[in-house]
C-alpha cells in the first residue's frame, strides 16, 4: 500500500455525510443521493480495510442511504410501496432534517470549545486539575507482561498431578473482595505475592480474572518500576482523583462489579 491514506476522524455517520456533502459542494437540501451513497460506501470500505472498528451506526446509515436511493428511483406519488408511502414527500427529507440538526450542535460544540476553558486556557488557584499527571517512575504494564507473569505463576505450581476434584469453590467475586481487602490493608501488593498462597490452577486463573475485572472497573492499577521489573498492584482512586493524587486507598469496592 503505497498510497497515502488520509482519513479524518468521523464522529459518526452524520459527520461523515456532512463531510461528503461539503466536499462535493452540493446543497444539503438537495443531496445527490446516488453519488453521495457511493462515496459513503467507499469510505466505509477504506475504514474497514484499515481495521477501524466500524460502529454499527455507520452500517445502519448505509442501509438508510440505499433505501432512500431506491425510493428516489420510484416515480413520485406511485402508491405501490407498502411502507413509507407518504404522498410523494421527498425521501431525503428526514435525513436532511437530521443532518441539519446535527450540524447545529456541531456548531454549538465548536463555540463551546472556543470558550476560555478551565485548566486549558485559564486556571484557578491551586488544585486546578491537570489531567494525567504522570506518576513518577511507574510505568503501566502491558497485557503481554501480565500474561507472562501469569505463565510464570502457573509454571511454579506443583507439577505432581494432584487430581483437582475440588468444586468451583472460589468465585471471581470473592477474589475481587479479597484483593480489595488486601489493598486496603497495604496500599501496594506485588503480583507474585498475590499468588504466593495459591495452590491450584483454578485458583490462579480465578485470581487473575478477578484482577482483570478490577482493572476494568478502574478500581486497581497495575504498574512496574521498570520494564521487566516486579509487577505491582495498587488501589486506584476514582478517575478524577487519580489524576491529581498519587496514592489513595479508599474503599473502591463499589466499582468492583
Amino acid at each position: 500500500m503505497s498510497t497515502q491514506v488520509q482519513l479524518e476522524i468521523f464522529e459518526g455517520p452524520l459527520d461523515l455525510l456532512l463531510h461528503l456533502i461539503k466536499k462535493n459542494e452540493v446543497s444539503i437540501t438537495d443531496i445527490p443521493i446516488a453519488a453521495i451513497t457511493e462515496q459513503y460506501l467507499a469510505t466505509l470500505e477504506v475504514m474497514q480495510s484499515l481495521n477501524l472498528d466500524l460502529a454499527g451506526e455507520f452500517l445502519v446509515m448505509a442501509a438508510t442511504l440505499i433505501h432512500i436511493k431506491s425510493r428516489m428511483l420510484l416515480p413520485a406519488g406511485d402508491g405501490t410501496t407498502e411502507e413509507d408511502d407518504d404522498d410523494g414527500e421527498d425521501p431525503r427529507e428526514e435525513l436532511v432534517r437530521r443532518l441539519l440538526e446535527y450540524q447545529r450542535f456541531k456548531d454549538a460544540a465548536e463555540k463551546l470549545g472556543q470558550r476560555e476553558i478551565l485548566a486549558r486556557d485559564v486556571f484557578i488557584r491551586s488544585g486546578t486539575p491537570v489531567e494525567d499527571v504522570p506518576v513518577p517512575n511507574l510505568r503501566e504494564v502491558s497485557v503481554f507482561e501480565l500474561l507472562n507473569a501469569l505463565k510464570r505463576v502457573l509454571e511454579r505450581l506443583p507439577k505432581e498431578n494432584v487430581h483437582e476434584i475440588t468444586l468451583d469453590k472460589i468465585t471471581v467475586r470473592e477474589k475481587m473482595t479479597f484483593l480489595l481487602d488486601t489493598l486496603r490493608a497495604r496500599s501496594k501488593v506485588l503480583f507474585d505475592a498475590l499468588f504466593a498462597e495459591v495452590k491450584t490452577r483454578m485458583e490462579v486463573v480465578v485470581t487473575f480474572l478477578a484482577m482483570l475485572e478490577l482493572v476494568k472497573a478502574r478500581a486497581i492499577r497495575i504498574f512496574q518500576d521498570e520494564l521487566g521489573g516486579p509487577i505491582q498492584i495498587e488501589a486506584a482512586a476514582g478517575m478524577d482523583e487519580a489524576s491529581i493524587l498519587p496514592v489513595i486507598s479508599t474503599g473502591e469496592e463499589d466499582h468492583g462489579t
Partner: peptide, 25 residues
C-alpha cells in the same frame, strides 16, 4: 496559559469532539 501549564506540569486538559458535542446537546 502557556506558562501556567508549564508550571503545573502534566498534560493539558483536552476536550474531544465527542465530549463537546454531547455536552452541547
Amino acid at each position: 496559559a502557556e506558562w501556567v501549564k508549564k508550571f503545573l506540569g502534566g498534560r493539558p486538559a483536552r476536550m474531544g469532539r465527542a465530549t463537546l458535542e454531547t455536552l452541547a446537546i
